[in-house]
Amino acid sequence: MDLPPITNGFELVYQKPQTLTETPMHYCPGCGHGVVHRVLMEVIDEMGLQDRTIGVAPVGCSVFAYEYMNIDVQEAAHGRASAVATGIKRVLPDRVVFSYQGDGDLAAIGTAETIHTVNRGENILMLFINNGVYGMTGGQMAPTTLLGMKTTTSPYGRETSLAGYPLKITELLAQLPGSYYVTRQAAHTAAAVRKLKKAVQLSLQYQLLNKGTCFIEVVSNCPSGWKMTPTESNKWLEANMFPIYPLGDLKTPAQPMN
């Protein structure tokens, strides 16, 4: 029996962008990755950049980002996404290039590559998903794990004498002359998603104008790693993560730090 399309009699106002594939995402219920993938791909679709965009996927939960993004993608070694993106952008300067990394990837093992990519002012977008935990390997402590926060490798809570402090790498990167636009966003509410989308749009516009590195941190949740329901994790995000990682622009063309 052929069913009529569900949109019959209705006006189609919102649909999946063709820059996302049909592959069902493997992310846990409530995870922010799917939303960020969608926002990024929606902007690439709306700006007509699908045929000239190359993404770089990390090692972490979003290791399979290329299964969902209907664009050319390279899968990098752990921590090296921005070095791979540098290699691509330097030989194809007229393409749009972005890297997509989590906190362990970008702010622990890949710290040197992160800092030097931004310091060279590589003309790329670096997307940084910070949920304070290594999700894929099962919830270990990340450089951005909050003090007192329990993970599988900080079972009694992160403590400074052993593990130091939450690394605010975005603040650090904003100090570098090579960064052009540095912002911290979220993806857990409709309002946050709208702001994130604007940040992605600006970043890609700046990239088309060869302005330098654009860096977006998305402070996100990890219901599985935090051992919470999605709703609880979003409340915990607001109550605990945002005070340490406050949302907003750290550096804009109108308000450069340097």
């Binding site: 190359i54 770089v56 390279q74 990098a76 070694a77 090296r80 070095a83 791979v84 993106a85 540098t86 290699g87 691509i88 952008k89 330097r90 030989v91 194809l92 040197a112 590559e113 030097h116």
Partner: peptide, 14 residues
């Protein structure tokens, strides 16, 4: 480490 990964990216870009 960064250099060989830049090589990876550039080679992957043809």
């Amino acid at each position: 480490v960064a250099a060989i990964n830049m090589v990876f990216g550039a080679s992957g870009a043809g």
